[in-house]
Design a protein around this nucleic acid. Sequence first.
DNA 1: CGTGTTTGACCAGCGC
DNA 2: GCGCTGGTCAAACACG
Length: 333
Amino acid sequence: MRIITRKEELVLLISKEMDYSTAYDDDTSLDLNSMPLRLFDDTPMIKKEVHSKILIDFGRQLSPKEESGALLEELHRVSAENKKLTEMLTVMGENYNALRSQLLEYMSKNPEKELSPIPKKRKSESSNNNTNSNNVMNGAVNGNSESSSSDGESFKKPREETIKAKVSRIYVRTQASDTTSLVVKDGYQWRKYGQKVTRDNPCPRAYFKCSFAPSCPVKKKVQRSVEDQSILVATYEGEHNHPNPSQIEATSGSNHCVAIGSVPCSTGPTITLALTKSKSSTADAKSTKTRTETPEVRKFLVEQMASSLTKDPDFTKALAAAISGRILQHNTY
DNA sequence: CGTGTTTGACCAGCGC
DNA sequence: GCGCTGGTCAAACACG
């Protein structure tokens, strides 16, 4: 039995990490579109830990035996964690599938019912309600769900705008205690221009216009659900003629379309974040001006980019070539 | 003082 | 035509 060299250990560790990445992506087939709550805190930490371990170990001189022992231990630990996480993700995936099938079953049984009943008196609205029934609760934004189903709208000039205006509805769960705020933080800037108590719902409905661009025609209505007042129902009308303000800052260079609960995001998958979480739900309307780009969002974006890189075969090859080059170079000394 | 929110008044569509 | 309802306007107000 020969002693594994320091560099070989490093290659093993890195390849193990690659395995981890692919296991993370392949074994679970989790759809980002439908899994709004990413685990920000769990998985990246382990990667970080491994990286830091490598860096720290490089910093000091160890005897070969000591080194290989420590690295083997590390290797075992990482593979154990890898296994554990894979199992967790499998379980989560199963739970998710179960929930989704339950939801679909419910929707098929109650095609007429909605979480938040829409007044059926108005012709233009009532005829379109059913197309919204596949919207998902709890902030799982169906960003451009209605884009194909010429969802009508009860604007003043019915027919022309009925075809043009895109309407999408999202459901956002807020803190149960916070039943007064009608703020849905989606990264855009909104100006409230009216509030009205409607007939079917004792909770007032708030009317917002997009104030980021003066010419932006998008309007938003926010009202609490009758059945569950911790759920905000936000209805978006129209399309933004400008990018998401938070998206400009957050995703320059990324080809992932990270729309934080925004309405139309036609170029790719919509990744949805929990819009109101913990204390943030108490933020007033002014807080929508200060971008919803939290450290978690930044971290998530970095993870996405890192994941894209590790999945890129060219990048992997280049990395392998660089490492083997370094090893060969080192061995010639 | 500028900006955003609140709130009562007004308007238009719809059903009877 | 009338009343009800949802949507919008704009003056008043609050806040930094």
